[in-house]
Amino acid sequence: MPNKKYVCIICPNSCEIDVEYSGKNITKISGQTCKKGEEYTRKEFTSPERGLTTSVPVHGGTIPLVSVKTSKTIPKELIKDAMAEISAARMNAPVKIGDPAIKNILGTGVDIVATKNVPKK
């Protein structure tokens, strides 16, 4: 049976997970120490997704940049396009954690949201 090895990125434990598969189906998963690890590996085998964190310029704030993240993971192959769209975004102070910088990025249903409070200058 062919197999693939994964390093789980969910938590610092970094479990090494072994997947046996035939065609597009997983036949055995081993090495994970929690349910999240198994979910991650199944997803990673079929359609890998990642969270994305970066920053966006903010107008009129006490600091020049606000950190942002994807509200949920997005398909790995969209990371580059998402970065291109985020690089054009701007926010206005005051910004609160959770405020959207971009809604529904690339039609994924996922928002780009602030992860820092930026008060007005």
């Binding site: 969910i10 964190t53 970066t54 992860t115 820092k116 409070n117």
Partner: peptide, 25 residues
């Protein structure tokens, strides 16, 4: 943590993966 804008903080304390600024807030 103000400059650690990547995620992965707080799994032990809060059970969710937060960015550095969110964890500190």
């Amino acid at each position: 943590l103000n400059q650690c804008i990547h995620e992965g903080f707080g799994l032990e304390s809060f059970g969710v993966a937060l960015s550095g600024p969110e964890y500190m807030q």
